[in-house]
Design a protein around this nucleic acid. Structure first.
Length: 270
DNA sequence: AAAGACACCTGGGAGC
DNA sequence: TGCTCCCAGGTGTCTT
């Protein structure tokens, strides 16, 4: 489940191999991802030099003079760099072949990911309404409080809303709410500024730590699974329903919020 | 306007 | 052991 740390790690992992490189060809074996891959646009990449690799939310942008390739890993996607050609496996849907001979390979068993095209000097509609980056200064307590004001929506759903803040998925939303001691079901508008401030800090902390740990696996990025091992980060609540709280030992409870499994501690989170 | 349901897809675990 | 069933999960879109 790529959340922001995994996307950041992936971006950092491919960056040194693609920036300044010339794209020889893009091989699409399976165009049916979340949306069809725009094959005509892929031709614009041929012969193009990759200018930069950027990340916006969970999207990775490969920028070339004509525009940018927009990549989302969905929930089972990954990318890796091959230094020599290898036979593709079943879910290796796209290869970005570089003139250097290296290949950036996109793999996605569940095909929830997407590969799209953003025109030069335009902002793709999918990126247009995104909220601030969680690790940026503009994501602070004042901002979050303004988003929460008067809202009845549970706080967990609010922080997972990409219009509010990008990159906070189910795992990190659950974990940061536990750390902040806030009940995930609590109405967003009924949380004090002080507590929201703690939540903001916990979101930043949990994401930063995961990115840091993802970075330690970069050495394995090439010719590997392409799956950063940031899951080593200990999870307090996610996936632990029915098990004892690591803080108070009461049994962790699971509820559905916005169709998402949500685990929390009834005695530590209010 | 806001909240909920649904859709996409497949591997993997549960149940038989 | 093998088959079927069901679900997770990010996020856009359609329905209340």
């Amino acid at each position: 489940m790529p959340e922001l740390p995994e996307v950041e790690t992936t971006k950092a992992g491919i960056e040194p191999y693609v920036v300044g490189s010339v794209v020889k060809s893009v091989v699409v074996r399976q165009p049916k991802l979340r949306w069809p891959i725009p094959l005509d646009k892929m031709e614009l990449l041929q012969g193009a030099t990759v200018l930069s690799v950027k990340r916006r939310g969970k999207y990775i942008l490969l920028e070339v003079p004509e525009g940018a390739l927009l990549i989302h890993l969905g929930m089972s996607g990954s990318m890796r760099v091959l230094t020599s050609y290898q036979e593709p496996n079943k879910h290796d849907h796209v290869d970005i072949c570089l003139e250097s001979g290296q290949v950036v390979r996109f793999t996605d068993p569940r095909r929830f990911g997407s590969i799209l095209w953003q025109e030069k000097a335009e902002i793709h509609p999918l990126l247009a309404a995104l909220g601030p980056e969680p690790l940026s200064e503009s994501f602070d307590a004042q901002y979050l409080a303004a988003c929460c004001k008067g809202k009845a929506v549970p706080i967990k759903q609010l922080i997972m809303n990409s219009k509010v803040v990008v990159g906070v998925g189910n795992i990190y939303a659950s974990e940061s709410l536990f750390k902040a001691g806030i009940d995930p079901r609590r109405a967003s508008g009924r949380i004090s500024l002080v507590r929201l401030s703690v939540l903001v800090e916990e979101i930043k902390k949990v994401l930063s730590l995961a990115i840091e740990q993802g970075g330690t696996t970069l050495k394995d990025f090439v010719n590997s699974e392409g799956k950063p091992g940031y899951f080593k980060q200990s999870l307090n609540v996610y996936g632990r329903a029915g098990e004892p709280c690591l803080n108070c030992h009461s049994i962790l409870k699971e509820v559905k919020l916005g169709q998402r499994g949500t685990v929390y501690c009834q005695s530590c989170q209010h």
